[in-house]
């Protein structure tokens, strides 16, 4: 019985859950569990923080999502909206902690967050192979955050251009140019880092 109830909840769409929240706040747990893993990885990928720090940030994200629930426009993807809030929280975290240089200095963060590159994703086919994931992670750490986030969203979070546009609040054309320039810069960093590994 419990399984059936749980499955029913899992089958609900994000919007249906959002609508049910008005009557049953506990339904929010379904939404949290649906997004916590992917947002956790996303946060760690863009901020290079520890699991503990990422959990704290994640809690803040879900509180903000709840607080701002009524600003969600069902015409657009819920996942883009929740990623937008995660992005904003990450930016706030960077500002408050003044850790803009964090990515270059933190060495304790594991690279496993970049281990799950789907095989059909090809950032730059000619030089990114599975055995160079470490090089990718290192290069991403050193990449300017404006390129890093857009590349992570496109190639690791597998978001479409219009979704990235909604998450970062930049025009689709800018997304495309950031991706292109980011790839160029990543390539240079990877070649440099690759020689040092």
């Amino acid at each position: 019985m419990r399984n059936i109830k749980k499955k029913t909840k899992e089958d609900l769409s994000d919007i249906e859950i959002v609508n049910l929240l008005k009557e049953d706040i506990d339904m929010y747990a379904v939404l949290i569990e649906r997004y916590e893993k992917q947002l956790m990885v996303y946060i760690r990928r863009i901020l290079f923080v520890s699991v503990e720090d990422a959990e704290d940030i994640l809690q803040e994200i879900f509180i903000k999502v709840y607080r701002n629930m009524n600003s969600y426009n069902p015409k657009y993807k819920f996942s883009s909206w929740i990623y937008r809030i995660a992005h904003n929280e990450a930016v706030s975290y960077l500002r408050s902690k003044k850790r803009k240089q964090l990515s270059k200095n933190v060495s304790s963060v594991e690279d496993d967050i970049f281990d799950k590159i789907p095989s059909d994703i090809d950032i730059e086919g000619e030089y990114i192979k599975k055995d160079s994931i470490k090089t990718v992670a290192q290069a991403l750490k050193n990449l300017d955050s404006k390129y890093r986030e857009v590349l992570i969203l496109r190639f690791f979070e597998e978001k479409e251009y219009n979704e990235i546009s909604e998450i970062l609040h930049i025009p689709s054309g800018t997304v495309a140019s950031l991706i292109n320039r980011g790839k160029e810069k990543l390539k240079i960093l990877m070649e440099k880092d690759g020689r040092n590994i």
């Binding site: 706040i25 929010y28 949290i32």
Partner: peptide, 12 residues
């Protein structure tokens, strides 16, 4: 219920 969802709901 996961830890994060428990914590978040508790705080809310």
């Amino acid at each position: 219920m996961g830890e994060i969802s428990k914590e978040v709901l508790k705080k809310i």
